[in-house]
Design a protein around this nucleic acid. Structure first.
Length: 860
RNA sequence: GGGCGAGUGGCGGAAUGGCAGACGCGCCGGCCUUAGGAGCCGGUGUCCCGUGAGGGACGUGUCGGUUCGAGUCCGACCUCGCCUACCA
């Protein structure tokens, strides 16, 4: 009835059987065009020197170039891009860099399998992933890209390593690593099954003592426990705190007792967090790796002990520490003397004691430690109770170890300390030991120094030269980088080809000039990711790792986004590096990331982690081809809370697609030429034109207020829902007399601006057409200012008040907005339904909740 | 074993202690169509009463508590997920 005459807003509507048709929303036509245009204009090349605007450093964890990004990568990066665009609309100079974590095992494995160079494999993948990332329409600052396998980057790994070495923060030490007789050293995750077999050849993996490079992260243990000044999720802070595992206690010295085969008097140091239980120590246990095992073992026990130690070496710590396994161990035929009471107690070797924690030896107090209790039961050793709640029988048998810590415990069977409160005895015993040189207060950490050596080719070569005369000598700074040789001679197994590369290996000692050999270990890739965000600020800088001026202006990172799986690895190492680099005078901050957000993980449709081997990977390219990037972006944001993730299910993506189609028609065809609907161009029943106009305005501004808050809180799913509601309202008015009026126009404008950070292409297209239709010069929607809420528009003249009787909803009533409580009560108490619910009872109390949001009548 | 988090329709999920189930999917009915896997309109927690308009009861893993009022706060338990794993 009203559909003839005008042409469509675009001017492109073609006459079609008496109707003009609006061009359909076709993302495939729009998206690449705008991506190219943004690129051309350099819309997102951040000017790092522009100080006219406040800076915002937005960082998202760089991907490992495995060949294909899956939908999980988009799940991280899409909202991150929306944050960047949102912040820009607030006038920030936003820096959102991207790069590639390009060293690492998968490249090497693929290289071995396909007989190609890891570099070729990696660079081809990077090229592919660049295209994929661009297809998202994300605003990455490509000009600042960092690729870690590029010598321009990794030479600074080497430079930093040399500085660490000079400061004693890097050191070399011999330790046990997993070793396969065919393939050499293995990473922990390459050892499979409880029977410890090599993932590639299936051979039994052993422990082998090898010289390894370490970083002294433990020097920073206490500082790393302090999370002051950073806004990180609790779970990450808790995990790091537990990982560092600070434990306060005492180191106690036990002397060995003289025996037929040993003069005795050797010191056995142990760490205990319970010095108050010292009188209950009834035996000692050494880790199989303990250096004194050999010297202390009695000749008649030697064969058995050596067999046990050898067998323990075939287990990993994880396996050894498994609580499922029954305790094992053997007596070594020697005794130690308890310093507090002079008692002689037997010494065992058992693998439930770790060589790498504390001193590698413990005093065993079975009465007050579950593990010791279990061991004592197994080997029929005495259990002496020394701490107990007041008023308990000190000689009663224990059914299990008593490990409780209450304030009301007393010492028993503890010589001169008997009867003392346990909490006080703790300190008194430490003091007593200290006076006699038999102990001191001590702190131990679970955290160990970071092993950065990898016996692998595809990583940053550790810049050290081994000379028989001078030892391990760092490569001179002006001789860096030590380049990774380009030609790789793999022999079909996982050994490190650097070990056979004579040209690489043979070198003159930097110190004495004599013949020497290069270190062939390469660095853990976490070394790269521990400082890469500093490098983004000056990726090409040739005379230093970081640009101090840029670092000063731009760090710390304002917002970091990425997965929680890095809680205790990457995120802890990064904090350590920042502090270590601060102490080298390279950076000024102590914390790298001011605010951290961990998004959830997208799993495969089967609920398992997405991986090629499981065949449950969702390819984003396919989805983009079918629905367009904006739809995929918006769908990922709409699925649920960002920190939640969940199994991938494309069900429902059609709803998001429908929403964008609807936005398209609202903007381009307000009059409803292409309606195809059944509303007949009529306003909703009972609604006047004035009602509709005010409703559009109030809804638009209320949406703006709420959506702004959602953007701030990263609540994408409700943000999208609210924009859907607004578009549903406008859609209802499309083709009616209010479509195209100023209130309509304002609502459309707000809708586009609010949607722009999340769905950048369609909004840019529609914005440009509106601007053109109005005869105005073009300016990108993405450089517009975020609109301001008009609070006055939100206020309504009436409101609906729910009425409860004793907390149960009974009625609702529409009243004038400014009504007083008293007036409201009168209205409420005259309602039929309310009277019926009261049943003649007198109101005891009337509650006006939430500033008149609800009335509750209480009766007895 | 320890730590953290989560349990709401058929599904994904909403809800500063104040109308549970926003928004979307799916499903049902209708309109428009030569056609519909397009578009549009309406309905959709469960049970009960009523021919009907409508009305009522129940309902956020279980049990208890605090409160005028609890999905939300507190306690205990159950289930699931993630991290961690004999750290002396």
């Amino acid at each position: 009835m009203t559909t003839t005459g005008d042409t469509a807003t675009t001017g492109e509507g073609a006459a079609h059987e008496g109707r003009s048709r609006v061009e359909r929303y076709d993302p495939a036509a729009i998206e690449p065009r705008w991506q190219a245009r943004w690129d051309e204009l350099g819309l997102y090349d951040t000017d790092l020197h522009d100080e006219s605007k406040p800076k915002f450093y937005l960082l998202t964890m760089y991907p490992y170039p495995s060949g294909d990004l899956h939908i999980g990568h988009w799940y991280i990066k899409t909202p991150t891009d929306a944050i960047a665009r949102y912040r820009r609309m607030h006038g920030f100079n936003v820096f959102l860099p991207i790069g590639f974590d390009a060293f690492g095992l998968p490249a090497e494995n693929a290289a071995i399998k396909n007989r190609i160079n890891p570099r070729e494999w990696t660079m081809a993948n990077i090229e592919h992933e660049r295209k994929q990332l661009r297809s998202m329409g994300a605003t990455f600052a490509w000009a600042s890209e960092v690729v870690t396998c590029d010598p321009a980057f990794y030479r600074w790994n080497q430079w930093l390593f040399v500085q660490f070495l000079k400061r004693g923060l890097a050191y070399r030490s011999v330790s046990a690593v997993d070793w396969c007789p065919n393939d050499g050293t293995l990473a922990r995750e390459q050892v499979e099954g409880t029977d410890r077999r090599c993932w590639r050849c299936g051979a039994k993996v052993e422990k082998r003592e090898l010289p390894q490079w370490y970083l002294r992260i433990t020097d920073y243990a206490d500082e790393l426990l302090d999370f002051g000044g950073i806004d990180w999720p609790d779970p990450v802070r808790i995990m790091q705190t537990n990982w560092i595992g600070r434990s306060s206690g005492a180191e106690v010295v036990f002397d060995t007792a003289p025996s037929s085969h040993n003069a005795g008097g050797e010191e056995l140091r142990v760490f205990t967090s319970r010095p108050d239980t010292l009188f209950g120590a009834t035996f000692m246990v050494l880790a199989p790796e303990h250096p004194l095992v050999g010297t202390l073992t009695a000749p008649e026990r030697r064969a058995e002990v050596e067999a046990y130690v050898a067998q323990a070496a075939t287990r990993t710590e994880i396996d050894r520490l498994s609580t499922e396994r029954e305790k094992t161990g053997v007596a070594i035929g020697a005794e130690a003397i308890n310093p507090v009471n002079g008692e002689r107690i037997p010494i065992f070797v058992a693998d439930y004691v770790l060589g790498t924690y504390g001193t590698g030896a413990i005093m065993a107090v079975p009465a007050h430690d579950e593990r010791d209790f279990e061991f004592a039961r197994r080997f029929d050793l005495p259990v002496v109770k020394v701490v107990m709640p007041r008023h308990e029988d000190p000689d009663a048998e224990l059914a299990s170890a008593f490990v409780e810590h209450t304030t009301d415990e007393v010492m028993v069977n503890s010589g001169r300390f008997t009867g003392r409160p346990a909490a006080e005895a703790w300190h008194e015993i430490v003091a007593w030991l200290a006076e006699r040189g038999k102990g001191r207060q001590a702190v131990t950490y679970r955290l160990r120094d970071w092993l950065v050596s990898r016996q692998r080719y595809w990583g940053t070569p550790i810049p050290v030269i081994h000379c028989e005369q001078c030892g391990a000598v760092p490569v001179a700074e002006d001789r860096l980088p030590v380049l990774l040789p380009e030609t790789v001679d793999y022999r079909g197994s996982g050994d490190n080809p650097l070990n056979r590369d004579e040209a690489f290996l043979n070198v003159a000692c930097p110190s004495c000039g004599g013949p020497a050999r290069r270190e062939t270990d390469t660095m853990d890739t976490f070394f790269d990711s521990s400082w890469y965000w500093f490098r983004y600020l000056s990726p090409a800088k040739a005379d230093g790792p970081v640009d101090p001026a840029m670092v000063r202006t731009w760090t710390p990172v304002d917002q970091y986004t990425g997965g929680a799986e890095h809680a205790v690895m990457h995120l802890l190492y990064s904090r350590f590096f920042t502090k270590a680099m601060r102490d080298l005078g390279l950076v000024h901050e102590s914390e790298p990331f001011r605010r951290l957000f961990n998004q959830g993980q997208i799993l495969g449709a089967d609920g398992e982690r997405m991986s090629k081997s499981r065949g449950n990977v969702q390819d984003p390219d396919e989805l983009v081809a079918r629905h367009g990037a904006d739809t995929v972006r918006l769908f990922l944001m709409f699925m649920g809370p960002w920190d939640q993730g969940g199994p991938w299910s494309p069900t429902g993506i059609g709803g998001v697609s429908k929403f964008l189609h609807r936005v398209w028609t609202i903007v381009l065809d307000p009059r409803g030429h292409d309606r195809g609907d059944a509303t007949g161009g009529e306003l909703p029943a009972g609604e006047t034109e004035a009602d509709a106009r005010s409703r559009m305005r109030s809804t638009a501004h209320r949406t703006l207020r709420d959506v702004t808050e959602d953007y701030e809180q990263f609540r994408w799913n409700t943000m999208v829902a609210k924009l859907m509601e607004l578009s549903n309202l406008l859609s209802r008015y499309r083709g009616t007399s209010v479509a195209g009026l100023p209130e309509w126009d304002e609502a459309v404008r707000l809708l586009l601006l609010m949607l722009a950070p999340a769905a950048p292409h369609i909004t840019e297209e529609l914005w440009s057409r509106r601007v053109a239709a109005a005869g105005l010069p073009w300016a990108s929607v993405h450089v517009q200012r975020w609109p301001k809420v008009d609070e006055a528009a939100i206020v309504e003249s009436t409101r609906e008040v729910p009425i409860q009787v004793n907390g149960k909803l009974r009625d609702r009533v529409t009243v004038a907005a400014g009504i007083s409580d008293l007036e409201l009560e009168q209205i409420v108490l005259s309602r039929d339904k309310v009277l019926a619910a009261l049943g003649g009872r007198e109101p005891h109390r009337i509650i006006h909740a939430g500033g008149g949001k609800l009335v509750n009548i209480v009766v007895r």
